[in-house]
Simulated assay, not measured.
Amino acid sequence: MKLLRDLLDKQVVDREQVKIGKVDGLVAELRPDKPPRIVAIELGSIALARRLGSRPGRRMARLAASMGGKQYGEPHRIAWHKVKDIGIDIEFDIDVRETSIFAWQDWLRDHVIGRIPGA
């Protein structure tokens, strides 16, 4: 499997087929005298900005942390061992309601969109 080609930008779904987002980054563990091992995937604008370089990644992390708090300064990670199937979509054995993946969207809805008249 060619990881970058086969995984980046693929749709991620939970066990109920709820769309979570797209794979924006991969987290690898470097091991001495062994090939690297994928330990997690990253989702979110920070991971996507990191693909453009370290400077855009740091700027996006600072922006997210300044708007929503320190907990939003890192991309969301899903452990690789939770992968259930890799096909057209990447299916994880998680329930999206048990994670904080949509916390940023909830924060934006409550603090920004909700304050727009007529929203």
Rank of each mutant, 00 (worst) to 15 (best):
S45W: 08
D89F: 14
P56F: 04
G73S: 07
I41H: 05
R97I: 13
D95R: 10
R58S: 13
Q105W: 13
I20G: 06
K22D: 05
K82S: 07
L26Y: 11
Q11W: 04
I41Q: 03
K84I: 00
R109M: 11
R55I: 12
T99E: 02
I90D: 02
D106V: 15
V39W: 14
R59W: 02
Q71D: 12
R77P: 05
S54L: 15
S45M: 12
V96I: 14
E98F: 10
I78Q: 06
R51D: 04
A40T: 10
E74M: 14
A103C: 00
D9I: 00
A40P: 11
D6L: 12
R15E: 15
G53Y: 01
L8E: 02
G21S: 05
R58C: 05
R97K: 06
K84R: 13
L3E: 14
D24M: 03
D95S: 05
I20A: 11
A47Y: 01
V112W: 09
H81P: 07
E42T: 09
K84V: 08
E29Y: 12
F92C: 08
A49P: 04
D106R: 15
P32C: 03
A79G: 10
K82L: 14
R97M: 15
L43W: 08
W104A: 08
D110E: 14
M1L: 11
R58I: 09
L108T: 04
G57I: 14
L108S: 04
V12D: 08
I101C: 02
P75N: 15
S54G: 02
D14S: 06
M1K: 03
R59H: 07
A79I: 04
K2C: 08
R55Q: 03
G118W: 13
G44P: 01
V83Q: 06
G87E: 14
L4V: 07
V12C: 03
D9K: 13
I88Y: 09
G118K: 10
A40I: 06
E16G: 00
E91Y: 00
Y72N: 04
A28D: 00
R50S: 05
G114P: 00
D93H: 06
I113M: 01
D85C: 00
V23L: 04
D24N: 03
R5W: 13
R97Q: 10
G21E: 14
R15I: 14
G118E: 05
D24A: 05
D6P: 07
P56M: 05
R77W: 01
K84A: 10
A119R: 05
K34C: 04
D14Y: 04
I113N: 01
A40E: 04
